[in-house]
Amino acid sequence: MSRIGVVTFPGSLDDRDALRAIRLSGAEPVALWHDDADLHGVDAVVLPGGFSYGDYLRCGAIARFSPAMLSIVDAANAGLPVLGICNGFQILCEAHLLPGALTRNEHLHFRNRDQWLRVEQTDTAWTSAYQPGEEILIPVKNGEGCYVADPATLEMLETTGRVVFRYLRGNPNGSQHDIAGVRNAAGNVVGLMPHPEHAVEALTGPSTDGLGIFTAVLAHLGTAVPAASRDRR
């Protein structure tokens, strides 16, 4: 069974939900600790949402230098699948595993709502369970989720298919090009602001559309996806 780690930083908020989503998708969740450089042999890593290190200085700026992250940067460069959700996305940008940066929402308000997204790229370690162009509904909740990059970087992202998710029917934070998530060149590292781990069960989420993220990485790792998780709709 594939083992997927979730790093808990001081101030992480959604690590428990991420661990739960991993279990529901049929993998073994493994709790990782920010101060531990040992990744305990996990097959993939999720950086959860929250406010690591109090969001001091900049969101993700201090988490980037934690012992766990230093190991994850090396592992990601060697091909380990890594997903950053919300604060995790901010950490991946700060760690330069993903291009661009996430800044204060354009309207200054914390935005918390169910959000439609379009899956633009399915050839990543985390999105192969979706159809190209598929529209999914998952929660978004952030105060600093406005994706920015210089014009050359935006052009590169668009022309090389590295915009993975795009906001539909309303941009919640002013992100350039309505970008909700991006990938690295190899496709093993993906970051997005919305929260797929909050959309894995009908009881607690607006849909179960988020489960595909976690079943996709199992398929990527060559693990048979349990029948219970395959029919996610």
Partner: peptide, 10 residues
């Protein structure tokens, strides 16, 4: 100036 533009898509 961006006052009143974009932003809130709700």
């Amino acid at each position: 100036p961006a006052e009143g533009e974009g932003g809130d898509g709700q």
